[in-house]
Nucleic acid binder design. Structure first.
Lengths: 277, 277
DNA sequence: CAGTGGTCTAGACCACACT
DNA sequence: GTGTGGTCTAGACCACTGC
């Protein structure tokens, strides 16, 4: 549907003024099935949508190169500049990574560079790299039925199967993060505690490899809280120690929520870092 | 210095290949005074630098329109496309705002739209707009000498004069934020408590108007803490209530730090919201 | 060396906002 | 209508990577 036969006219250049534009069918996707607003959509946005479609249908896997700009321009019958602008936006959204001289690559959480793309907790002294990777302890991993609030967050129905995991992350031997993770049971059928513990590298990279689920963006809600007795024990802190509560909703393509996390962060040795602009 | 006589050659188009490039003086700013790396700098980056220079020297004031792309292209002797790319980056950094059909405007904190650009605290229920603007209570505003840590943050020397203010922000009548603000005494000479209390709208807008200081970006460090007795009283919460500690360093152009804030946020009715990608 | 992304130009036309 | 930013094209050349 999206391949050879490009869904838009080859853009009869130059003399557009004389032809009354392609008011025929197969309009450039700008008509939203009789939507009230004409909703003008630039060509490069449509191209972006087509690339996105290929991305989410796995035409290219994480870490792989997508076709060159020239190839894509030929496939979609548009100029290289238009493809470039489409890819520019995808790159700005971190869906794709450009590397001069080499190509454009599907983003992945398995890259060396930034170990934990979504983790904003930084050690007060030193660097995230100096303290090395986190030590994971899986306390629990089982299939349960979604509670009302978990279901709402993940766009499921209460009672639907979900995978729930609880774990502790330690840095330099110090337990620092205690978190619960909920995943849709459908997409994560067969996830085991061993899998969560055994994989080297970011958990999100394991999700990509083993389940084909790519987390693309996330939203977090932060609060200061006091832990209950069990939580304090899990982190090895005295009860009464204030902790940073971080609720994260992570999304795949098309804003589909695929993971809910509720974490408690120690902030006596680390802090949550954020950039505003 | 930056005006009529553009500091780069008019780009002798097409036949660049024959001429061995302008190896003369007045090089296109790409030579960093004998830097080890040739450090190639694209033209649009240089244009961006020139526009930035005009911006920080007040050639155009916040809220005003900068010259049109065509005008700037003529001034700098480059194509409109090159100016466009320069402005694109400035817009991406929120230094400038594009409005189709109208022009490109210098960003300001005084705009209607987003009341508090840097404040990420959101009411749990409803919208930031539903609860209206914050009620400010200035507890203190005086000139003091910078302590060691304040001086380090603001790139001053310990003992240098700074303005220190303490205030409470209330939403819907409920005190929610207690914060201390430190500003370089130099740039904020004459700032009074009345001024901080009386101005309608964001404090950063007042900084622009009255002191010509434009905050362009900021970094925050978040922690969960317990307030001391005075702090708890200031917010009207029981002692032992965990609070979100937010330390913010705000910068003007060129990464010059101009404000340090240490805030305590109540997170029982609000939460700190963050987007990751 | 060829191939890739990155820069730059020049020109045409479109969508939007004023007047 | 005029002027602004926004889109699209076509072609040339540059910088980087790897064969």
């Amino acid at each position: 549907m999206l391949d050879s036969g490009a869904p838009h006219p080859p853009v009869s250049d130059q003399d557009m003024s004389s032809t009354p534009a392609s008011a025929t069918d197969a309009a450039p996707a700008t008509s939203g099935a009789g939507s009230p607003t004409p909703a003008f959509s630039p060509l490069y946005q449509q191209i972006k949508g087509l690339i996105l479609h290929s991305l989410q249908h796995g035409e290219w896997k994480p870490g792989e190169a997508i076709p060159s700009e020239i190839e894509l321009a030929a496939r979609f019958r548009v100029s290289q500049g238009t493809v470039r602008k489409a890819i520019d936006e995808l790159a700005a959204e971190n869906l794709v990574t450009r590397r001069q001289g080499k190509g454009t690559f599907v983003s992945t959480h398995a890259e060396r560079q930034v170990q934990y793309r979504f983790l904003k907790l930084i050690p007060d002294a030193g660097d995230a790299r100096t303290e090395g990777p986190a030590q994971r302890t899986i306390l629990e991993c089982r299939r349960v039925r979604a509670s009302a609030d978990v279901a709402r967050a993940l766009a499921l129905r209460a009672g639907d199967p979900v995978v729930q995991a609880r774990r502790v992350l330690a840095f330099a031997g110090v337990p620092t993060i205690l978190e619960d993770i909920w995943l849709p049971g459908q997409a994560f059928r067969g996830l085991t505690a061993e899998q969560m513990a055994g994989y080297q590298g970011p958990t999100y990279a394991m999700f990509e490899l083993d389940f084909g689920v790519r987390m693309v963006r996330a939203e977090e809600k932060l609060r200061a809280v006091l832990p209950d007795a069990a939580q304090a024990e899990g982190l090895g802190v005295p009860p009464g120690t204030p902790l940073l509560s971080v609720e994260r909703l992570a999304y795949t393509y098309n804003d589909v929520p695929m993971e809910l996390r509720r974490g408690l962060y120690r902030t006596d040795t680390h802090h949550y870092h954020n950039e505003l602009s």
